[in-house]
Design a binder for these strands. Structure first.
Lengths: 157, 157
DNA sequence: ATAGTCTCCGATCAATAAGGTCGGATTAAG
DNA sequence: CTTAATCCGACCTTATTGATCGGAGACTAT
């Protein structure tokens, strides 16, 4: 439950990759093309292309056409939040159907619904969480402050 | 994005209703049948029945057969967490596909995936959130500490 | 200037999950 | 024993997601 889509997953991977190449590499500022990312992470090329296009449309990355073209970050990594990335791909955050109802348009249960308010609080907490984490926090040598119990480590093979 | 399913939504409404009837009513301890809930909240009867059956199977509520039968809470409201309810209906919490991979079964991107660890942290934070909120917190006269800006109120018609 | 990449965009298809339905078996109160 | 309720499992329909295809346009290296 509460799963994020594959597209959003791909978006995170791609942005993380672009950010890493752009900042720490031997060739800083170099553009990254779709194919490179697709091959690196085994993502279907065409699908990834669509994802990157969407991200470009939402001004998270900039595209450069032609040979030796590709994408690069529109802002610095610490200025791009996870929430912005996810919302670019999946639309606005909403725990329930009634999260962003337009005026006068209510769900069938609205009359007697007692769970709306507490659920909106949950949603808001999640939104805060995603807004406080940036692309920078996902980059290579910067592991996050772990919340998980220390004993739960060492799962990597 | 990150939407919870309608079934889970229905489960929350139903449990909130049962909890309210059971504690604060003129007839405390009375059982509540499916039809009563379905009509109160305009939920398709058959679908709600399935949801309640699932909840019963997961020992969140107890079922009583026969005429004058119905459901009642298996534990007290403050001992039932939102996480338990949601997981009963939608299965274990998992932000990504690779959240609960069985041994040796990895996703295509696993090799070079740099976003898994930070995403698991996000997931853990959400899990904490949902585990710290109980059914009691959703009940009638107990509005939650509001996080939303006070000016965003008065949306009710 | 031109050729060759590369991005861009729309339409389309398949697979999966969600939402919702149906019929009959089982149980217990009256 | 009859009735009304839960219970159980199979089924269908629709929406969403994941993935694919074909071509048009843009840009740069040569």
């Amino acid at each position: 439950m509460l799963k994020i889509s594959k597209k959003a997953d791909y978006a995170l991977m791609a942005l993380q990759h672009i950010a890493t190449v752009q900042s720490g590499d031997v060739t800083p500022g170099r553009v990254v093309n779709t194919k490179e990312i697709a091959e690196e992470y085994n993502i279907p090329l065409e699908l990834l292309a669509k994802v990157l296009q969407t991200l470009a449309k939402n001004a998270l990355i900039e595209s450069h056409n032609g040979p030796k073209g590709g994408y690069l970050l529109a802002r610095r990594a610490h200025q791009i939040t996870i929430a912005q990335i996810l919302e670019s791909i999946e639309g606005p955050l909403g725990i329930t159907d009634c999260s962003h109802e337009k005026n006068g348009e209510f769900c069938m249960q609205r009359e007697n619904c007692h769970i709306r308010t507490p659920l909106l609080k949950v949603q808001d907490s999640i939104a805060q969480l995603l807004n406080n984490m940036t692309l920078q926090d996902m980059m290579g040598g910067t592991p996050l402050i772990t919340i998980q119990s220390p004993t739960a480590q060492g799962v990597e093979r």
